[in-house]
Design a protein around this nucleic acid. Sequence first.
DNA 1: AGTTGTGTTGAAGA
DNA 2: ATCTTCAACACAAC
Length: 282
Amino acid sequence: MPELPEVQTVVSDLNRKIKGDVITDFWSEWPKAINGKSLDAFKKEIKGRKVLEARRIGKNIFIDLSGGKTLYIHLKMTGHLLIKQKAESNGYFSDRVNQYIRHIFHIGKDKTMEFSDMRKFGKIVLDDTEKISELKEVKKLGIDAMSAEFTFRKFNEILDRKQKAVIGILLMDQETISGIGNIYRSEVLYDADISPKRKAADLSLDDRKRLYDSIRRILKLAIKLRGTSDSDYRDTSGAPGGFQKVMKVYKQQGKKCGKCGGTIEREKMGQRSVFFCPGCQA
DNA sequence: AGTTGTGTTGAAGA
DNA sequence: ATCTTCAACACAAC
């Protein structure tokens, strides 16, 4: 489940591994993932373009290419990108989760970028850079949770604007703040000692400050640990991240809370599971 | 062996 | 406007 830290890891890897390289060919067994044009047209349009820079907003990946084009990729739930070099032996690539290769970008002389996506929810769009920014799903994205613009002041304004919103749901709303998904909303709220059920309007100034600090701290730590590989997510080498080793509440229901000794609970919020400690999180 | 849980997002329904 | 539910799809666990 690639959320902001996982996508950040991928984007950093791409800039390290394929920046400056030319895309020479493309193959797909699931052209339905390609939005807006046929497989043939896509192939023609991408061939020969150089990778200038990878970047992201929230969980959305943008790979800027030469000639004013941008490749927009959303990994959705089970997607991840693998960069392989020919004749390279890497034990990770044979893992089950890395076997669902739906699309292959041939890059340079001897590299590929392979899109593994078990559930085929992933999305690929290629268009003019400006047109990609104008896509409705891109345009409506809220402020990125790790961007410099996402200050406490801004966060406080959002909470004032969304008075009635339940905080556990609001944190995951990509149109408000982009980047936080189901894993990190639970971890962040636990870190801040705030119940997911609280309403935005009911959070005191002190609560808000703790929550903001927790968002930044947890995401930063998760980026440092190269994301969470609870199930499907892998980095571009096919290797798992490390955040699952330090997870405190996500999927920890029934276990003891490290802070108060109480029991971690799981509940449905929306139709997703939220995890929390009823003792610590008031 | 059928049912359920898994989570991101968009669309449809209320 | 805003909330809820479902559908996209595949597989593991029960």
